[in-house]
């Protein structure tokens, strides 16, 4: 198995030596290029052999970020649409809070969720079945939803606001119910709504701070691509880290292609 070989666990001492040694600038650059090349080859091999450990990590990544994205879209799209359509006292405050949420540092979210879910935390101490435990996939999903739903809501709100408000009134005058008119306007704003989902996905598939804190990077359980990259880089397994990074980038690329298809011809 490629993943567990002793050579890989030890890293590549010669290359590390070369990186930090007295080889000079050009030698270091050559070594870095070699690492990238090795990484590409290794990524191909890992994928070709369907390395079970790598496949597990990819599956956990997709499961965590996919579930979090679905939940974020379920919360964020209606919230964004509502903020885009409605006028109420305190709307500006809600929007300001949402914009703040769009820039939340993942590690801060991780810390917050960690404290909430820890045994002595306000939620963790309840020991209720519906509250996910720390260092589980559930806890990682909670953290990622908090990171991505403000992005989905914020961009959806902007997209809905970009549609001429008269359209809604015109559809209502054609006999549409409020709900039907809302759906039609969302459909008109679909380009922006899909961008909101893409932004939400990008923010969570690539984040490391929150999943590291609340997931714990446990092998075979909560290890995802980003935390595995951190681990392998620390171990000096640069080729493997690069291989995982390339898999992560490819996943992100493929998901975005999929979502762009949803935008249809407008994209």
């Amino acid at each position: 198995m490629l993943w567990g070989s002793p050579q890989r666990r030890r890293g590549h001492p010669k290359r590390i030596e070369a990186l930090h040694g007295l080889g000079g600038e050009s030698k270091r650059r050559r070594c870095a290029i070699n690492e990238i090349w090795e990484g590409i080859k290794q990524a191909a091999l890992l994928l070709w052999h369907l390395d079970p450990e790598v496949m597990h990590i990819v599956a956990v990544s997709l499961r965590v970020s996919g579930t979090a994205l679905l939940l974020s879209a379920a919360i964020g799209i209606p919230l964004g649409a509502w903020l885009g359509f409605s006028r109420f006292v305190g709307r500006r405050l809600v929007v300001a809070l949402l914009y703040t949420g769009m820039g939340l540092p993942p590690v801060v979210v991780g810390l917050f969720v960690y404290l909430l879910l820890s045994q002595s935390g306000p939620l963790g101490s309840l020991n209720a079945a519906w509250i996910p435990r720390l260092f589980t996939v559930g806890a990682m999903v909670v953290a990622q939803v908090i990171i991505s739903f403000p992005l989905v809501a914020g961009f959806t709100m902007a997209a809905v606001k970009g549609v001429d408000p008269s359209l809604r009134q015109q559809l209502i005058s054609l006999g549409a119910t409020e709900w039907q008119a809302t759906l039609a306007v969302l459909r008109e704003a679909r380009f922006g709504v899909i961008v909101s989902v893409i932004a939400g996905f990008g923010s969570i598939i690539s984040e490391v701070g929150a999943v590291m804190l609340v997931g714990g990077n446990i092998e075979g359980s909560t290890r995802v691509l980003t935390t595995a990259i951190v681990l392998e880089t620390r171990r000096g397994n640069f080729s493997l880290a690069i291989a995982l990074a390339l898999i992560l980038l490819s996943l992100s690329f493929l998901s975005n292609i999929l979502m762009l298809r949803l935008q249809g011809k407008t994209a």
Partner: peptide
């Protein structure tokens, strides 16, 4: 409300075909 219909001065259509735009109220 459905007994009255208004044509606006600056009509806005859905980004769809003419047919589907005209069919909108009936489908609603």
């Amino acid at each position: 409300r459905r007994r009255v219909t208004m044509v606006f001065q600056r009509p806005l259509l859905l980004s769809d075909s003419v047919f589907r735009n005209v069919a909108y109220g009936l489908r609603a």
